[in-house]
């Protein structure tokens, strides 16, 4: 820049000299570039001129309006450095460079490295992501496996519990079956005993001094009762047949009637076949009463009949 000559004035009519300034700018085409470089190599004045313009172009690199790089760019660069392939410094040979920046070297782009760096980074990121995904998948499967194992353990425990319950139920059923067999056997025995006692009772009543029949008081009823009176002991024996079955909270009650007054003669129940027996001892001889009746009453008996009689009978003929 300290050249005393006017810029460009020293080569007014020569194309090579005219291209020195634009060559420094990088605007010359291939043929022009080689011609200018040859001139600069052969002519010190041309070389000085080219150097002056190159310094001007070098300053031009700093002429862009100053703009702050985005803050995130530094973080991006740091991340890229983490993924950049290692390069040993000793391997890198110094690059012989001209004193000033060269015009745009279109065939010498540095970008040939970038696809390789980007591809390497992409592969690393892909492998890293795949590894993370697989680790996450393994963790998920492990958790699912642990859950299934716990469920299987719970299920085994439940099955064992159910098996124990079934065994206990089987034992209970077997025991109940045995009890049922025993009860059935006992029922057979009781039936025989009842039949025997009924015969004994009938024979006993037959030997009583007086007998009284009580006939159905309700239409289409087959209920029937016979009372034998043993005047010597002041004891009466009642044998009921074909009485309707009672609910568990009910009982039959014998009423002795005199002058319209009902006196309880006692309570009894009947079997499934409607048979029942009552031995009673009234406060007076039986012939002191006018009649008899039997009504269903709540368990424990009532002070007076609360329901229509099942059977009734007179204690005096006529």
């Amino acid at each position: 820049m300290n050249d005393a000559r006017s810029p460009g004035a020293q080569f007014p009519d020569d194309n090579q000299e005219n291209d020195i300034a634009t060559h420094a700018l990088g605007a010359t085409d291939a043929g022009e570039r080689s011609a200018v470089e040859a001139l600069a190599a052969a002519d010190p004045a041309a070389a000085a001129e080219l150097a002056a313009y190159r310094r001007l172009v070098e300053i031009m690199h700093y002429s862009a309006p100053p703009v702050a790089a985005p803050p995130a760019l530094e973080a991006t660069l740091r991340a890229a450095l983490e993924g950049a392939p290692p390069v040993a410094a000793a391997v890198v040979a110094p690059l012989p460079r001209p004193p000033a920046p060269q015009p745009v070297p279109r065939g010498r782009s540095w970008n040939w490295l970038w696809p390789a760096v980007a591809a390497s980074a992409a592969v690393i990121l892909l492998l890293f992501g795949l590894n993370l995904w697989q680790m996450g998948r393994i963790a998920t499967l492990s958790a699912e496996n642990a859950t299934l194992q716990a469920q299987l353990t719970d299920r085994d425990a439940l099955i064992a519990q159910r098996s124990a319950q079934l065994t206990a139920l089987d034992q209970q059923i077997a025991a109940q079956a045995e009890s049922l067999d025993a009860a059935q056997a006992q029922a057979v025995d009781l039936g025989a005993l009842l039949a025997e006692r009924t015969q004994v009772l009938a024979a006993t009543i037959a030997r009583a001094g007086e007998t009284y029949d009580m006939t159905p008081a309700q239409p289409e009823s087959a209920a029937f009762a016979t009372v034998g009176w043993f005047d010597a002991g002041g004891v009466g024996i009642l044998q009921a047949s074909d009485f309707p079955p009672l609910a568990p909270d009910m009982t039959y009650q014998l009423w002795l009637i005199k002058d319209g007054q009902r006196t309880s003669g006692g309570l009894f129940t009947v079997s499934d076949t409607g048979s029942g027996t009552l031995i009673f001892s009234p406060p007076d001889t039986l012939d002191a009463f006018d009649g008899m009746g039997i009504t269903p009453e709540p368990a424990g008996g009532s002070s007076a009949p609360t329901a229509p009689p099942v059977v009734t009978g007179s204690l005096h003929e006529g």
């Binding site: 950049a84 110094p94 460079r97 001209p98």
Partner: peptide, 18 residues
């Protein structure tokens, strides 16, 4: 890209030349 190139090939800058 420029700084990554610098990272990968720091020896390409010759201080004597600028």
């Amino acid at each position: 890209d420029v700084f990554l190139k610098l990272w990968q090939q720091p020896g390409r800058w010759n201080p004597a030349l600028g």
